[in-house]
Amino acid sequence: NITNLCPFDEVFNATRFASVYAWNRKRISNCVADYSVLYNFAPFFAFKCYGVSPTKLNDLCFTNVYADSFVIRGNEVSQIAPGQTGNIADYNYKLPDDFTGCVIAWNSNKLDSKVGGNYNYLYRLFRKSNLKPFERDISTEIYQAGNKPCNGVAGFNCYFPLRSYGFRPTYGVGHQPYRVVVLSFELLHAPATVCGPKKST
């Protein structure tokens, strides 16, 4: 009989979020998941679920829940969905086509923008091939755009693969920082350890 609540607040209220190319993952297990707390949290810009209804989450049990978190621009949030393409979905964070879970995003301009620009948040701009679902690539190898080998030196046709967002408070909404948490639900042939409040007695 599990009684402790799942530590969703640790994920959602973290002081610093990860850059999207180096997205953070927390495994959540052996706890009671009260999703209504999240669902009623006012400032969400997006709360979209795939393969599961957000209002039914509290009735369900899962083997594991993974909480992935990172920061992207407002106009990139739409790429955090199954079957998407674009710089983020291709080179930074890719969801599987059969994704079961929820994508939760909110504007973090007050936290993550600075006058003069916040350059701490990076994304991958160049990559030889697209990421596989949930693949994480933190390499900083110089990207070779031409035929000539770069030998690890940036220059003509040789690019550092990461780019900084440089968030400023005055940017338009599409270019403002958004914090994103992706909850993915794993249902294995194993005992369920993460259940909603109704199922955990």
Score class of each variant (00 low, 15 high):
Val115Tyr: 11
Val37Asp: 09
Cys195Pro: 11
Phe167Pro: 05
Tyr119Phe: 12
Asn30Ile: 00
Arg73Pro: 10
Ala46His: 15
Asn4Pro: 06
Ser113Met: 06
Glu135Trp: 04
Asp97His: 10
Glu186Gln: 10
Asp97Glu: 11
Tyr35Leu: 15
Glu186Tyr: 06
Leu187Arg: 13
His189Met: 10
Phe17Pro: 05
Lys198Thr: 14
Lys110Tyr: 08
Arg168Tyr: 10
Cys61Ala: 12
Tyr91Glu: 03
Thr140Ser: 12
Cys195Gln: 11
Tyr143Ala: 09
His189Pro: 14
Gly152Trp: 06
Pro161Trp: 01
Pro177Trp: 05
Ala18Met: 06
Ser139Ala: 09
Tyr123His: 13
Gly174Ala: 13
Cys102Ala: 00
Asp112Trp: 00
Tyr159Lys: 14
Val32Thr: 15
Asp137Trp: 00
Val194Arg: 10
Thr193Met: 11
Lys48Leu: 04
Phe134Ser: 08
Cys158Phe: 04
Val182Asp: 00
Trp23His: 04
Glu186Cys: 05
Val37Tyr: 15
Lys94Asn: 05
Arg27Gln: 11
Val52Met: 07
Asp59Arg: 09
Asn24Gly: 07
Pro191Phe: 05
Thr3Asn: 09
Pro149Gly: 12
Ser19Gly: 04
Arg25Pro: 02
Ser200Leu: 13
Asn58Gly: 11
Tyr39Glu: 15
Ser164Pro: 12
Asn24Leu: 03
Asn92Tyr: 02
Arg179Leu: 03
Gly117Val: 08
Ile142Thr: 10
Gly83Pro: 01
Val181Thr: 02
Ala145Gln: 13
Ile138Asn: 15
Arg163Asp: 11
Tyr39Val: 09
Val103Gln: 00
Glu135His: 07
Gly172Cys: 06
Asn147Lys: 13
Tyr159His: 15
Val32Ser: 10
Ala22Cys: 08
Val65Arg: 04
Val173Gln: 14
Cys102Lys: 00
Phe126Thr: 14
Cys195Thr: 11
Val181Gly: 00
Arg27Met: 08
Ala81Phe: 01
Asn75Lys: 11
Tyr143Gly: 08
Val52His: 03
Phe12Gln: 02
Ile104Ala: 05
Tyr178Arg: 02
Cys49His: 00
Asn120Ala: 12
Arg25Gln: 02
Ala14Met: 05
Ala67Ile: 10
Asp98Gln: 08
Ser113Ile: 04
Ala105Trp: 09
Ser29Cys: 08
Leu131Glu: 04
Cys31His: 06
Arg25Ala: 02
Leu187Met: 14
Phe156Trp: 12
Ser129Asn: 14
Phe8Thr: 02
Glu141Ser: 11
Cys102Tyr: 00
Tyr165Asn: 05
Arg163Leu: 08
Asn87Arg: 13
Asn58Met: 07
Lys48Ile: 05
Asn157Ala: 11
Gln176Gly: 05
Pro197Asp: 14
Ala192Gly: 14
Phe134Leu: 07
Arg16Thr: 15
Tyr159Trp: 12
Pro191Tyr: 07
Phe47Gln: 03
Leu111Gln: 14
Gly196Leu: 10
Glu135Met: 06
Pro161Asn: 07
Leu38Arg: 02
Tyr178Phe: 13
Ala105His: 06
Ser19Leu: 01
Tyr21Leu: 03
Thr100Gln: 09
Arg27Pro: 06
Leu183Gly: 00
Ala22Tyr: 07
Trp23Met: 04
Val11Asp: 03
Val52Leu: 09
Asp112Phe: 00
Val194Ala: 10
Phe8Gln: 01
Asn1Cys: 05
Pro191Ser: 12
Val37Arg: 14
Tyr39Ala: 14
Pro197Leu: 15
Gly146Thr: 10
Val182Ile: 06
Gly172Ile: 12
Arg168Val: 11
Asn4Lys: 13
Pro96Met: 00
Tyr66Cys: 06
Gln144Val: 08
Trp106Gly: 00
Glu10Thr: 09
Pro54Glu: 12
Ala22Phe: 06
Thr15Ile: 03
Lys114Asn: 13
Ser129Phe: 08
Phe160Ile: 12
Thr193Trp: 07
Val182Met: 01
Cys102Pro: 00
His175Arg: 10
Leu38Asn: 03
Gln176Lys: 02
Asp112Asn: 01
Arg179Lys: 02
Ala89Trp: 01
Gly155Trp: 07
Asn147Leu: 11
Pro191Asp: 14
Leu38Glu: 03
Pro54Trp: 15
Ser108Asp: 05
Leu5Ile: 12
Leu125Ser: 15
Thr85Met: 07
Cys61Trp: 06
Asp137Pro: 03
Cys195Glu: 12
Lys56Ser: 12
Glu76Thr: 01
Phe167Ile: 04
Gly51Asp: 03
Cys49Asp: 00
Thr170Ser: 12
Gly152Tyr: 07
Tyr119Arg: 14
Asp90Leu: 07
Leu188Cys: 14
Thr55Val: 09
Cys158Thr: 06
Thr85Gly: 07
Ser113Tyr: 04
Tyr35Glu: 06
Arg127Ile: 02
Gly174Val: 08
Phe41Ala: 08
Gly74Glu: 08
Gly74Thr: 01
Pro191Cys: 07
Ser139Met: 06
Ser19Pro: 14
Val71His: 00
Ile80Tyr: 01
Arg127Asp: 05
Arg163Ala: 13
Val182Ser: 00
Ser129Lys: 13
Glu141Gly: 12
Ala145Arg: 11
Val115Gln: 14
Arg168Asp: 15
Ser164Trp: 06
Asn30Cys: 06
Leu5Tyr: 11
Gln144Leu: 06
Gly101Val: 00
Lys128Pro: 13
Gly174Arg: 11
Tyr39Ile: 09
Phe70Pro: 01
Ser19Thr: 04
Tyr35Gln: 06
Pro197Ile: 15
Glu135Ala: 07
Asn107Ser: 07
Leu162Lys: 02
Leu38Lys: 03
Ile80His: 01
Val153Gln: 14
Asp90Met: 07
Tyr171Ala: 15
Phe99Asn: 00
Glu76His: 07
Asp34Thr: 04
Gly172His: 12
Ile138Lys: 11
Lys199Val: 15
Phe17Leu: 03
Leu38Ile: 15
Ala89Cys: 04
Thr201Ala: 13
Asn87Gly: 08
Ile2Trp: 10
